[in-house]
Simulated assay, not measured.
Amino acid sequence: MTKRIRKAVFPVAGLGTRFLPATKAVPKEMLTVVDRPVVQHVVDEAREAGIEHFVFVTGRGKAVIEDHFDMAYELEDTLRRRNKTKEYDALMADLPPAGATSFTRQQAPLGLGHAVWCAREIIGDEPFAVLLPDMITLPAAGKTARCLAQAVEAYEKHGGNIIAVEEVKPEETHQYGVVATGEDYGSSFEITGMVEKPPQGAAPSNYIISGRYILEPKIFELLEKGEKGAGGEIQLTDAMIHLAKERPFHGVRFDGRTYDTGSKLGFLAANIAFGLARGDIAEGLKAEIRKLLG
Score class of each variant (00 low, 15 high):
T104W: 06
L79S: 01
F69A: 01
P96N: 07
H68M: 00
A93L: 03
K84M: 09
L91Q: 12
D70K: 02
L79Y: 13
D89I: 08
S102Q: 00
D77T: 14
D94Y: 07
A63C: 13
D67Q: 03
D94I: 00
S102D: 05
L75H: 11
E87S: 08
D70T: 13
S102L: 02
V64M: 06
R81V: 06
I65K: 07
R60I: 10
K86Y: 15
L79F: 07
A72L: 10
F56G: 11
D89A: 03
F56N: 11
A100L: 06
L75V: 15
L75I: 14
M92K: 15
L91H: 12
R81M: 06
M92Q: 15
G59L: 04
T104L: 00
G59M: 11
D89G: 14
A63W: 10
T85N: 04
T78V: 15
A93S: 08
Q107I: 01
Q107T: 05
D89V: 12
D70L: 12
E76Q: 13
A100Q: 07
V64H: 00
Y88S: 10
N83G: 11
K86L: 14
A90H: 13
N83S: 06
Y73T: 05
D67G: 07
G61R: 02
T58I: 14
D94G: 01
Q106P: 04
D70C: 08
P96Q: 10
E66T: 07
M71C: 05
V64Y: 07
R81Y: 01
G99D: 06
Q107V: 01
G59V: 03
K62F: 05
K62T: 14
T85C: 04
F69P: 05
Y73L: 05
D70F: 14
R82G: 04
P97N: 04
K84I: 07
M71E: 15
E74V: 13
K84D: 11
L91E: 14
R82P: 02
Y73V: 12
L95C: 06
M71W: 14
D94N: 10
Q107F: 10
Y88C: 04
F69M: 06
R105P: 13
Y88V: 11
T101I: 03
A63G: 11
L95F: 05
D70W: 10
L75P: 09
R82C: 01
V64D: 13
T104Q: 12
Y88M: 01
A90C: 04
D77V: 03
P97G: 14
H68V: 03
L95E: 00
A100M: 00
E74Q: 09
